[in-house]
Structure formats: structure tokens, C-alpha cells
């Protein structure tokens, strides 16, 4: 009787340990499912990088912005901004954001009145996944197909 009891205790303890280790090991299965490809390196400012885009934009005080030109740059440094109401967005084919930059176009008041238009030249990464350049402000939005430049 004692022997059977000992075996029963062994089995009971084994099942408890199995459940506990299963709970702990389950994380591996979750990791395996969510293991993502290494995230693309986030572009860092203040360092010269290869393959960039030189984007010339016009912001209007009372109209949607305009993309004047988009030119590839062999190398360059990312434009650093202090943030703002307008968003420069690179999107992939499905519209997922690839790169975002916020800018604040400043319409200066002069003796002749407030300027209606501001031109900005920005350097952004030429991400291989990017398909659309979307410039979005309070005044409106413009979507530019980057396939035109490739």
C-alpha cells in the first residue's frame, strides 16, 4: 500500500511540475508566433546616410499643400524639425506608415501683409517600402506617388 501511495505521489507531483513548466514554457510558443523580423533601423538624425529623398514642398496659408518635386539624393542628412501641425508621411503600398515627420510652416507677417505661401525643402529617407508621400496639414492633404521617381 505504501508503495502504491509513493507512486501516486510521484505522479501527482509530476503532473503539477508539468503544468507549471508548461505555463512557463508557453512563452516560447508565443514568442515563436510573434517573433518579428528585426525592425528596420530607425533613421537617425545628424548622420550622413545613403539613398535619401530631397522633397520640395509648398505650404499655403489657406489651401492644401503642394509637392513641388521629389528627387533622389545619393546621400544626405535627415531634416530635423521641432514638430508642428503638418505631417510628412511615407506610406507603403497598403497605406501603413513607414516614416513620419512633423513640420510647422511659418507664415511670416510683413509690411505687405502675411505671406500666403512658404516653401520648405526637406530630406527624408528613400525607404524601399515607401510608395506614397502624404503631406497633411490643417488646410488639406496631398498624396504623391513615389513610383514616379523610381
Amino acid at each position: 500500500m505504501k508503495i502504491r501511495f509513493a507512486l501516486q505521489v510521484q505522479i501527482l507531483l509530476s503532473v503539477i511540475v508539468a503544468l507549471l513548466s508548461g505555463y512557463l514554457l508557453e512563452g516560447v510558443a508565443v514568442l515563436a508566433q510573434t517573433a518579428v523580423e528585426p525592425p528596420a533601423a530607425t533613421p537617425q538624425p545628424f548622420e550622413t546616410r545613403l539613398d535619401m529623398l530631397l522633397v520640395k514642398l509648398r505650404f499655403f496659408r489657406s489651401a492644401a499643400p503642394e509637392v513641388v518635386s521629389v528627387e533622389p539624393l545619393a546621400e544626405g542628412r535627415l531634416t530635423v524639425t521641432q514638430g508642428g501641425d503638418c505631417t510628412i508621411l511615407l506610406q507603403d503600398e497598403q497605406g501603413r506608415p513607414v516614416y513620419t515627420l512633423a513640420v510647422a510652416p511659418i507664415f511670416v507677417r510683413t509690411e505687405g501683409g502675411t505671406r500666403e505661401m512658404v516653401e520648405r525643402i526637406l530630406v527624408i529617407p528613400n525607404d524601399a517600402l515607401a510608395r506614397w508621400l502624404v503631406v497633411s496639414c490643417l488646410q488639406g492633404e496631398v498624396k504623391y506617388d513615389l513610383a514616379n521617381n523610381r
Partner: peptide, 18 residues
């Protein structure tokens, strides 16, 4: 033999890794 069923309850990868 004892661990198989409790580990399998979690998932097949858990069973294999265990």
C-alpha cells in the same frame, strides 16, 4: 509519458520544447 498530456494542453510547441 506523464508530462505529455499536461504540456500538450498548453500547445504543441510547448509540448515539443518541454
Amino acid at each position: 509519458l506523464i508530462f505529455a498530456v499536461p504540456l500538450w494542453l498548453f500547445s504543441l510547441p510547448t509540448l515539443a520544447i518541454g
